[in-house]
Every structure is written in C-alpha cells, then in structure tokens.
Nucleic acid binder design. Sequence first.
DNA 1: ATCATACACGAACATCCGTTCTGTGTCAAG
DNA 2: CTTGACACAGAACGGATGTTCGTGTATGAT
Lengths: 223, 223
Amino acid sequence: MMARARKGLTERHQKIIDFLNERIRVQGYPPSIREIGEAIGVSSTSVVTYYLKQLTEMGLIERDARASRALRLSNPLGQDTVKIPILGPIAAGLPMLVPEAGVTYIGDDLDAVDVARSILPAREKSDGLFALKVKGDSMIDAMINDGDIVIMKPVVSASNGEMVAIWLPNRDETTLKYFYKEGQKYRLQPANPTMKAIMIDKDEPLEIKGKVIMVIRKVSRTI
Amino acid sequence: MMARARKGLTERHQKIIDFLNERIRVQGYPPSIREIGEAIGVSSTSVVTYYLKQLTEMGLIERDARASRALRLSNPLGQDTVKIPILGPIAAGLPMLVPEAGVTYIGDDLDAVDVARSILPAREKSDGLFALKVKGDSMIDAMINDGDIVIMKPVVSASNGEMVAIWLPNRDETTLKYFYKEGQKYRLQPANPTMKAIMIDKDEPLEIKGKVIMVIRKVSRTI
DNA sequence: ATCATACACGAACATCCGTTCTGTGTCAAG
DNA sequence: CTTGACACAGAACGGATGTTCGTGTATGAT
C-alpha cells in the first residue's frame, strides 16, 4: 500500500502554487481551473481539480465550492504584512509586558505597526511578536532613540549576544542590553562601546521579557 | 448641462470600494457582479456594471473583460507595501547617490526593502524613495548602526532640523547629520548630544543628497 | 497475474457570471 | 412641457467555469 510516500510537493504541485502566486500578484485575482491547466501543461480540467483537491488537503490553498476563481493561498507570498501590536511605551518599567499566550491582540484599533514579512528575520514566526515605543532617551546606550519602535519576540531566556529587554526587580528598572552569561554573573552590555557593561550577580533576580529583533525609527525633524 | 458636477465618489461608489476591499481581504478573491449588487442593495446586475464602469473610468479599479471576478483595486488597502531600492552601501562616499528622475529602479532583483505603506510618514509619495545600507560605525554619531537601513527621500535642500545626507567635497566625506542654517554658516549637528557639531562655512561646497525619513535595524546578534 | 493506486484525458452538464437590451421613474435645464 | 442625463430594474443570451463521470495507462504490491 501507499505506492508513493508523502513526498510533500511534487513538481506539479509546486508549479500550481507558483502560478497562483504569480497570477494573484499581477492580476489581483486567482486564475480559473482551465487557466491553471494551461499553465502547468495539463489539458483536462479534471486533472487540475484533482491537484487542487490535494493542495487543499495539504492545507496549502483554500477553496470555496462552486464559485469561479474562488480560491486563495493559505500562505500568500509577496506583499503580505504582519500587524504587530504596540503594547505600550517602554520607560516606566514595562508594565504587563508579556502578552498572555494565545490572546490575539490584532483586535481593532490598538496601536499597531505593519511590517512587511519580507523584512522580518527569515521566517520569524510572527505570532506573538509585539512592539514597544521607546519614550525618552534612556535607551540611547542601545542605539535606540526616543520615539523608536522596537519589535520584540517574547522569550524568557536568551543566548549570549542577543539583545533583550531585561527586568531588574531590585533596581526597578527595565533596560535593553546585549546579554551574556559569564560564570557566576550576567553581563549586560550596552551597544554603545563607550559605555560600560552592567554586571549582575546570578542570585540577583532578573527577568528576560523578550528579545529585540528589529528597530524602526521614523525620522521627523527631531532634536 | 452637467446637472451633477464631478462630485468624486458617491455613497454607492464608496460602498462598492469598501466591499471590494473587505471581500478581497477576507476571501482572497474579488466578488462577482451579483455579489456586489447584493452587498450594495441593488437588484440588477446592469446597475452594478454601470457603477463598475464609472469606477474604472475614475481609475479606482481595473477590470479584465469577460472573465468572472476579473477585477482588482488600483489602490488596495491594507496589505500594501512599497518596494524601496537599496542603492548601495553608505561609506565610500555615496557614489551616484541621486537616482535619475523618472527612472524606475524597481527593476528585478536589485536589493530592495519592502516597507508597509502604513509605517511610512503620512502619505509620503513613496516615489523616488531609496534606501542605503550603512556600512561601518561611521554613522554612530547619528544613532545609526552598522547594518542599519536608512530610507531616504531625495532632496537638494533641507529645512532646519531635518536629518540629511550631506556630501562635503572638500573633505571627500558623506555624513548624516541634522541640518541647520545659521547666519553665514551651516551647522551639522550629530544626533548624539555628547558629540559636537560641525560648522561649515557658507562658501564651502556642500551638497545635500537626501533626507532621512526612516531607519530600520534588523537585530541579529551583533557585537 | 491480479489488483489497487496514482496520474491523466475528454466530454457532458448545470450553473455561474458578465454583457447587453429594453423599460421606468426622477429631476433639473431649456 | 419637453428633453435628456441619471439611477435603477429585469430579463435574455452566450460564454466562462467548476463538477462529475467514464475511460485509459502505468506502476508497485500481493
């Protein structure tokens, strides 16, 4: 049984997906069954239906029955953007910084930034990302300016060298620093080489809230 | 004659546009004529055709004759992004920095960044914008880091307080600074307050290449 | 050899869908 | 009042489109 294992996408499948992406991008609407057939070198509409059914079952496309061109890609390429909620200004100590898991913040008119998926680090899951608007110059040591938007990924631990938002309960302070674990201490390294690192003892409480994956600055006649 | 002046969009027109945006967004493909009719409260397909023709003439939508759902919005809402070409690294002195007017650089596979239109400064024309990838730390005085992408608008003059890319032929140097005209001198003010301004005499040559409208930094374990 | 499965063709339908034509009512200008 | 542009309805037509069914051909498993 199972003459052909789930080899994922055959060449035909890939050609269909590519064609759909192309047509939707340049024409703004999906092609018809017959147009697909022509594009992939198949003369019968039933063969196209056959493959579309498979692609639907694989979850790559979605179809609405019995309507023409009623099909969409589950993961369209190109122009797509991700809406990242701005959870609040970073300054007063990151109140309620970590979003509850599973909750969608893409609600209605909360502040949010649209970011083209293509400028996010490769295949960043983009779920759960959140953004903070930097208030004040307190982050200037991290090359981050007043008004900048930092895009963060919620994490609770970090690898050496990542820039993370760190909550220091003892100092009642949140700061963006490069994070290094060094023996019995944590070294929190500012990005600006002229400033010196903060050393934190391992038994001092320290909570990592997220890591910075991107900074966006709109320049509008500051200073 | 002309009982009704070009009042632009009537309520019907707006409802159609809104409906198209909605449907394309949630369904991934445009509605049929009859679906549009139902949505805007019109029972005859000819009336919908009637309005679609007007919208086409206004340039708001585009249609392909004689195919079902073959219609697209000229200016789709939401997901749209602007492709901004990266003209090259800023470091060696901005060679050929200013793009020739009218030339489209959105060619094929030049480096480019996609930017959601919604995060560009309000209704920035987005034509002619270009981007530079910062090489080295030479711009650190402008809070701009190695690897950052600065998005610029080509201008040849600047108002006080704008951050501009300035070419100083006498020094064979390009720099990003806040620009101020002060009497017989130009003051080029670094963003970092700890660094002092450069004063340029008015008779010293100075060429403004563009002004910074945005900075994008992908953070990926630097330092 | 036999059988199930995957892949492919083509034709037949029944709709879906866009176009077009006719007709009706309104309203303002002449 | 007449005229004509405008807004709308309704129906008819033909082409476009998705679905289904019957058929055929490899190929691997039994």
